[in-house]
Design a protein around this nucleic acid. Structure first.
Lengths: 336, 336
DNA sequence: TTGTTCCATGTTAGCGCTAACATGAGGTGA
DNA sequence: TCACCTCATGTTAGCGCTAACATGGAACAA
């Protein structure tokens, strides 16, 4: 290993330089170098300059792994999302990163792929890296994972929902109420045959319950519920499976736009306002895309990045309010 | 701190249990516990069972920070992307995570926000966590960052492009050729006034050069180039700024769809085939959305997740081909 | 002068784990 | 019977850093 040495002086040695090598070169003790890195104000200017020069000469890069072990602070947070590709959770990850990275925290990202077993494994994997907090979308699916998190004794933030018995902190919105709001709006519009399309994950299901309950309470027949596979998010075919329906709530905007595409093929989409649509379509997420298509997409707008930023804040402040409802807005455009 | 002990037996003590506590409880040495965790085959079944029981009793979670320091293996990879929200890079992150997570690697995610200074900082931050590889979108913007990566002596994978002098490995496609392909197609279609809209990041610029060079080579006038701010990706207004143009190459699908939205408002969008479009529009990225809108979006399809998976493979195998061109495809639909 | 305080720097021990090298019990073959 | 091997387990040292506690000199008041 030490045989991989490059020409001395021209490049770094085979192994990365350590604190004590810097110390030796600067003629100080290693703790002084450590202070230059972490609390430069405690070091006399001339000493500091000498140490900084030595660090530059050697191309020293602090080893945070060792630092973390010694200080019991990893300066990292674990983030668990169902999926990051093509998903609104990316906004949340971006939001929390933007808040945490400037503070020196790193984000360790894991994906559960909507799979409880994988979620358990990823949570265990995250915890073994001793993050200082865990931010996750939703709540742990298994009792086992829940126990793991409770025992971890670090801030845990559950997001994108408002669980009744959270482990610790919450930053989200009421998915049930979102479903209610959509149903209310459609009922007020005079729609009679409602349907819901989306996945059967916990949050989607909560939206469905709100949607259904409100429809029933308004005297409508029980809405149809079409559970789509996550893959065919743009299920053009969905319309064929919902004959007679005059209003649809899609659990996310991608589903909504896919459904609209099916409506177009069936000649059931107008470029006019909501009142002209044979079938009203409401999405959720407020993708930018929704404003660009025709007809423009009505949707439940959720601030994914605000959820992320709030979650980050909740990991940093242990006291104070631990449950933040970021709400949602029904944004009405031309699709319904 | 040890005064925070919970009732013995009912829960974890204030501090997380360590290997040696497990060892003591199981009546073995700590190395045996370590073996049970990492190489269970080396431990006799009865001993293993005893150790596993002790781990369960104590709720032991291995401390990978300590393990990493001792073994000089962190089992993590650093991933640097310009942005994760609303971006095709999320596909790449998903692809590489899917490949790396099952192997026990964690993904440390950082965002540069298309800012060279922030990129430098994030790279330094990543390197201090001693990842076993770095995967980044594009190439380092500064000489400083480049030096840092070269000196790190770990696999470095640059993605989403094919740099002439990569630091180490590459998984991407030829952005210049993508621009050429689009221009060729538009010229063949008889378009005369070309324009390019998009950002001025390195990859977008490479696409522009290809596009422009091919247009000029075909005897057309130099195409217009509209540099959009990253925020107004759906620049509905863009059309107004491109009078007389009959074909547009947008550096990504979001820009393309935004532009089409502007065309629609101007009455310049048909539901018919490409030949019927007063203004042809070609995007890049092949968002699912592009197939769902009307007219369907013609685009350069790039396999973002394949880039991620390939990058992951390149971090794992140090030998072999270090430059993988994943190519792209011109997918022709109705917009141009 | 003699504390007393502050400031800059150093010493010591140890974070929780693993690599590398023992150790000793039992089996094997000639 | 003895050298030799295999298998299961243990001992020792140390990864690179930081917390906590010295240390010793300058500055200052009484």
């Amino acid at each position: 290993m030490s045989s991989e040495l490059t020409a001395p002086g021209t490049g770094p040695a085979g192994a990365a330089p350590t604190l004590s090598e810097v110390a030796k070169r600067a003629g100080v003790s290693s703790i002084t170098v450590s202070r230059v890195v972490r609390m430069p104000d405690l070091v006399a200017p001339e000493t500091r300059a000498r140490v900084e020069q030595a660090m530059r000469d050697l191309g020293y890069i602090p080893n945070l792994v060792a630092g973390a072990l010694a200080s019991a602070r990893t300066n990292s947070v674990g983030v668990l999302v169902p999926t990051i590709a093509n998903s609104i959770f990316a906004d949340t990850v971006q939001g929390l990163s933007d808040k945490l990275e400037p503070l020196g925290f790193s984000v360790i990202l894991a994906q559960s792929r909507y799979d409880a077993e994988r979620e358990d494994r990823m949570l265990a994997a995250l915890l073994s890296r001793r993050p200082e907090a865990i931010i996750m979308v939703g709540s742990p699916a298994t009792e086992e994972a829940s126990r793991l998190l409770r025992n971890a004794r670090i801030p845990i933030v559950e997001t994108w929902d408002l669980p009744a018995n959270p482990i610790d902190a919450v930053a989200g919105f009421d998915n049930y109420k979102a479903g209610v709001a959509v149903a209310k709006h459609l009922v007020a519009q005079g729609r009679k045959q409602l349907a819901f399309i989306g996945g059967d994950d916990p949050r989607g299901t909560r939206r469905w319950f709100g949607f259904r309950d409100e429809a029933l309470a308004s005297g409508l027949a029980e809405p149809r519920r079409l559970i789509l596979d996550r893959k065919d998010s743009g299920s053009v075919a969905a319309h064929a499976r919902l004959p007679g329906v005059d209003a649809v709530f899609a659990a996310n905007d991608a589903h909504a736009i896919g459904f609209m595409s099916g409506l177009r093929k069936a000649g059931l989409l107008r470029d006019g306002p909501a009142s002209a649509q044979p079938v009203a379509v409401i999405g959720l997420g407020d993708l930018e895309m929704g404003q660009l298509i025709s007809p423009t997409l009505s949707t439940i707008s959720v601030h994914g990045d605000a959820i992320g930023r709030t979650a980050a804040t909740l990991t940093l402040e242990r006291g104070g309010e631990r449950r933040v409802d970021l709400g949602f807005e029904l944004v009405l455009r031309d699709s319904g």
